[in-house]
């Protein structure tokens, strides 16, 4: 039942069977989070190190708790407090962490491909917690897990991802994962925020919000980074909101039982209005719980030993 790789670097090269295994395992893990005693002894004696070169309290905490609920020892290393400040290379930092006994390294890094580089240079398992704008597989898996709790099947499911697709690792990982399981994925955003030739990834590309939302089962609303305005990628938050904000009128374009996802943190009133964010169709808080469950599932599935299982 282990995965095909001991690393989780991205969903592009993960099989659909592996994705399903992770989602099924996450289902069992979620029960543990809901118990009074939120701990199982599974990863007793294992060490998980979170190595974060970008600030993300949310993702880091989620991995920390996932490890702790499975009884792993978790240690966090952030770029600002470590030898990274002294100019040590990523590989050297990771090798140091490994030499101290880490079994799993969770890496968040601003450079695309950094987790792959790490996996090629150290022996322990590497989980990509976001590398540049390349991939953020655990976010996509938690999005998919959340969708699976509300929708029967991914086959034919219409999922629309809205926003700054160009700079979104979440969008890329979601596209790989969702299309593998047969969902019909569309992306929509201003032309300046759509990467070239994205349709070759198997998605429909829109600049018109109304067309992209029509009949959707799931809408995944991306956070708009306010600094993109200064970079000249869009003229103003006001215009962005007017063209691509999710509001109640646009909600009406979706299927009646459509759900709204957002990876957080939200800019209320910009990409999503509060009345939508707080509506019964929004599953944003569930995503947070599911993030811990999915990360527990991954930590469990990636930390196997060497022996083949005995009979009886």
């Amino acid at each position: 039942m282990s995965l095909q790789s001991k690393h989780m670097l991205g969903l592009q090269h993960v099989s659909d069977e592996d994705i399903i295994t992770i989602l099924n395992t996450a289902n069992a893990m979620k029960d543990i989070i809901k118990r009074k005693i939120k701990k199982v002894p599974t990863l007793r004696g294992r060490t998980v190190v979170t190595l974060f070169y970008e600030n993300s309290t949310r993702t880091k905490t989620s991995f920390d708790l996932a490890g702790k609920y499975l009884s792993a020892d978790t240690v966090g290393l952030s770029a600002s407090s470590s030898s990274v400040q002294k100019g040590e290379s990523l590989i050297d930092t990771a090798r140091t962490v490994e030499a101290m006994g880490a079994d799993v390294v969770v890496l968040r890094h601003p450079a695309a491909g950094s987790s792959k580089m790490l996996a090629e240079n150290i022996n322990c398992s590497v989980i990509n917690a976001g590398d540049g704008v390349h991939e953020h597989p655990t976010q996509a898996l938690l999005d998919m897990f959340t969708i699976s709790e509300h929708k029967k099947d991914f086959k034919g499911l219409k999922v629309t991802i809205v926003g700054d697709i160009l700079h979104s690792r979440v969008a890329r990982s979601n596209i790989w994962g969702l299309t593998k399981l047969g969902a019909e994925v569309s992306v929509v955003g201003p032309a300046t925020m759509l990467p070239p030739k994205m349709e070759k990834m198997g998605v429909k590309v829109y600049t018109n919000m109304e067309e992209a939302l029509a009949g959707a089962d799931v809408v995944n609303v991306l956070r708009i980074q306010l600094e993109r305005q200064k970079q000249g990628l869009f003229p103003s938050l006001r215009e962005y909101s007017r063209l691509y904000g999710i509001n109640q009128e646009r909600l009406a374009l979706l299927k009646d039982d459509a759900i709204i996802l957002h990876p957080g943190p939200m800019n209320r009133g910009v990409e999503i209005v509060s009345r939508v964010a707080d509506s019964s169709q929004a599953v944003i808080e569930e995503q947070v719980t599911n993030g811990v469950a999915v990360r527990m599932a991954l930590l469990y599935l990636l930390t196997g030993g060497e022996k083949v299982e005995d009979v009886n």
């Binding site: 592009q12 695309a112 491909g113 590398d131 540049g132 704008v133 390349h134 991939e135 690792r169 890329r172 990467p195 070239p196 030739k197 994205m198 070759k200 990834m201």
Partner: peptide, 13 residues
């Protein structure tokens, strides 16, 4: 190069 590969790899094109 800016193209499909840069889109997939997440590297600025």
């Amino acid at each position: 190069h800016e193209g499909f590969q840069s889109t997939v790899l997440g590297l600025p094109g």
